[in-house]
Design a protein around this nucleic acid. Structure first.
Length: 325
DNA sequence: TCTCCTCGAGATCT
DNA sequence: CTCGAGGAGA
């Protein structure tokens, strides 16, 4: 494979392993197809730039049934490392008379056609194949694909991990002989069929696993109730409206809000004409805001100019106020 | 509420 | 890579 070294303007050196290679891959689908081709490759290592494919396996599925299969060992340019032989059982002797990948690629492409591809962590296999197919055939390997790993993590969150063998084991499949391409294709195919059944073959059921708001952890600060018996009625925050902006260094925002509630203060989510205190966190990390003022801060400053009883407090002053009672 | 953003943590493939 | 956390802003 090609090997790149790039010397940056600042003198630092990047090799191909640290280089982001742009591949125009197909779409990563969240679908439950009944027609697809499972693929799996064995390689001499994890890096598509330095390592080589030594075995390709594929299983063609139509209407959920296996209709054809493809399997070949491949002779690499370099020798197979010891640990790969231990992992896969593939020895240099076995590859002695195997074809080189260049000669079998056209046949492989013909086998998979424009099928949706299924694989476990299929990015790995596609990245390897993509580079060969581009180099040898000058073709873009852009089949859409379904990643069993991605689906299994959602559908079976209770599994101790989501390695292919673990998924297969938990689904009571025969996982002996894994780490050979055809066998792994088989485990992948059967796991996928069981996964489809688990979600009742219903794509909406599957997709609903992703639909929960990524923002579900958002807390409405006005709903935070004091969890202590009595308020500190002489405290600066007592019965006053408090708002936070920016990220607090020493505590989570909800913790800070809880402190305010326990004093008898009232937390708001945003600055209003009733706000009395705006507590300022930091914005360094937020590239949205960068050195600028947050919208809450700008709004507070306008209200202060208009004569509102509103004070802006630094994070440190806030800690002093809540701890030093 | 909802959408968009970034950051950091944690897996998986051989 | 993928995801969740936790922000902003509308």
């Amino acid at each position: 494979m090609s090997f790149y070294i790039i010397v940056n303007e600042d003198g630092t050196i990047e090799t191909s392993s640290s280089l982001k290679i742009k591949r125009k891959k197909g779409n990563n689908l969240i679908e439950l197809p009944s027609d697809y081709t499972v693929i799996d490759t064995e390689t001499t290592g994890l890096d598509p730039v330095f390592d080589e494919i030594i075995e390709i396996g594929a299983i063609k599925v139509r209407n959920n049934e296996i209709v054809d299969q493809y399997q070949t060992l491949l002779k690499p340019e370099e020798f197979v490392p010891e640990f790969i032989t231990e992992l896969t059982g593939i020895t240099n002797e076995m590859l002695e008379n195997a074809p080189k990948i260049e000669s079998i690629l056209p046949g492989f492409i013909e086998f998979i056609q424009d099928d949706i591809l299924l694989g476990h962590n299929i990015h790995f296999d596609i990245n390897f194949l993509y580079d060969y197919i581009e180099d040898v055939l000058n073709l873009e390997f852009s089949n859409d694909f379904v990643d069993l790993l991605r689906l299994a993590r959602k559908v079976y969150p209770e599994f101790e991990n989501h390695k292919l063998a673990t998924v297969g084991k938990n689904l009571n499949l025969d996982i002996s002989g894994s780490h050979r391409s055809i066998k792994d294709c088989m485990i992948t195919h059967k796991s996928f069929q069981l996964l489809k059944a688990k979600v009742n073959n219903d794509i909406d059921t599957l997709k609903s696993l992703w639909s929960s708001y990524t923002n579900s952890g958002w807390t409405d600060l006005t709903k935070i109730k004091a969890d202590v018996g009595s308020f500190k009625e002489d405290h600066l925050f007592y019965a006053k409206n408090c708002v936070f902006t920016g990220k607090l260094e020493k505590m989570a925002r909800t913790e800070a809000a809880q402190c305010v509630a326990n004093i008898g203060g009232i937390c708001q989510n945003g600055v209003t004409m009733a706000t009395n205190f705006l507590i300022l966190g930091n914005f360094d990390y937020s590239s949205n805001i960068k050195g600028n003022k947050s919208s809450k801060l700008k709004k507070a400053e306008r209200y202060i100019l208009a004569g509102q009883d509103l004070q802006i407090l630094s994070e440190d002053v806030f800690y002093d106020l809540i701890s030093g009672n």
